[in-house]
């Protein structure tokens, strides 16, 4: 479980996040939505310890204090845009995900984690390709494999955390859905804490176990989808009147 208490972030005297107290449970997907500039990425960076100098409040991983090298063994983070300026093969990049687990040479276990993560994201045909020659969607899937290889095996049965900042960018419809189904599978079968930022409200409604709606640095609503995805909340956050349909317990939103 990941818990934040009164988490606030201010950068250069501008308040970006204000008093966020939330819990993110294991085995569940929590999706964060909100308009541009709401503070979604800042929240992700903040719970990942990148803004320690600018933040107040606490972020706790299972109530334990872990060093960054210990944390790297159980927590993987996908950033919004991982850009690479040098040619590397897909295999090399995925292996970087195992860096926290070995000091000089990868073990058999590390190699297995890599090849299984590569299979999981259907990248077998790309392993020897130069990353810089891939398409945007393919690059994104390579980073999925890298990030998942990092926490592929559980360490002494500790909770694993997967934090994703806009993972669906660059993906076509097929891979958007297949990625989200895979996240569902991971959360349920491996009891992972999965936190993600998404823009698509329908995908959010379909896959989130919990939704956190951010606007102007504050949590407008958080909870299950029928609570959060109400007309009032959406108008307040996105300044647009939605049409909401509920068909067989599934929520569909369009504008």
């Amino acid at each position: 479980m990941l818990t934040t208490k009164n988490l606030s972030v201010a950068i250069a005297n501008k308040v970006i996040l204000e008093n966020i107290s939330e819990t993110f449970e294991a085995g569940k997907i929590t999706l964060i939505i909100g308009p541009n500039g709401a503070g979604k990425s800042t929240f992700i960076k903040s719970i990942c310890g990148q803004l320690k100098l600018n933040q107040k409040g606490t972020v706790d991983y299972d109530a334990e204090v872990l060093s960054i090298s210990e944390l790297a063994k159980v927590r993987a983070v996908l950033s919004q845009n991982s850009k690479l300026n040098f040619p590397l093969t897909v295999r090399d990049i995925v292996m970087m995900g195992r860096y926290p687990h070995f000091s000089n040479y990868p073990s058999e276990k590390d190699k297995r984690a890599c090849s299984e993560a590569i299979q999981f994201f259907e990248l077998e045909n790309f392993v020897d390709r130069n990353y810089l020659t891939l398409s945007g969607g393919e690059m994104q899937r390579v980073h999925f494999a890298r990030v998942l290889a990092q926490i592929w095996f559980s360490e002494e049965n500790k909770t694993r955390y997967l934090i994703l900042d806009e993972p669906l960018t660059f993906l076509d419809v097929h891979f958007q859905y297949s990625f989200m189904y895979k996240m569902q599978e991971l959360a349920k079968e491996n009891n992972m804490v999965i936190i993600g930022v998404l823009h698509d409200l329908n995908l959010t409604a379909k896959f989130a176990d919990k939704i956190m709606l951010l606007s102007q640095g504050k949590v407008i609503a958080s909870g299950n989808k029928s609570e959060v995805l109400s007309k009032e909340n959406i108008v307040e956050a996105f300044k647009m009147e939605p049409k909401i349909h509920t068909i067989e317990n599934e929520i569909f939103i369009h504008f």
């Binding site: 090298s69 790297a72 927590r75 950033s79 690479l84 040098f86 090399d92 970087m96």
Partner: peptide, 15 residues
Amino acid sequence: NALILGADEASYLGI
């Protein structure tokens, strides 16, 4: 090597 991915990514890898 990890730094090639970016400073944030390297720190997520425990560096």
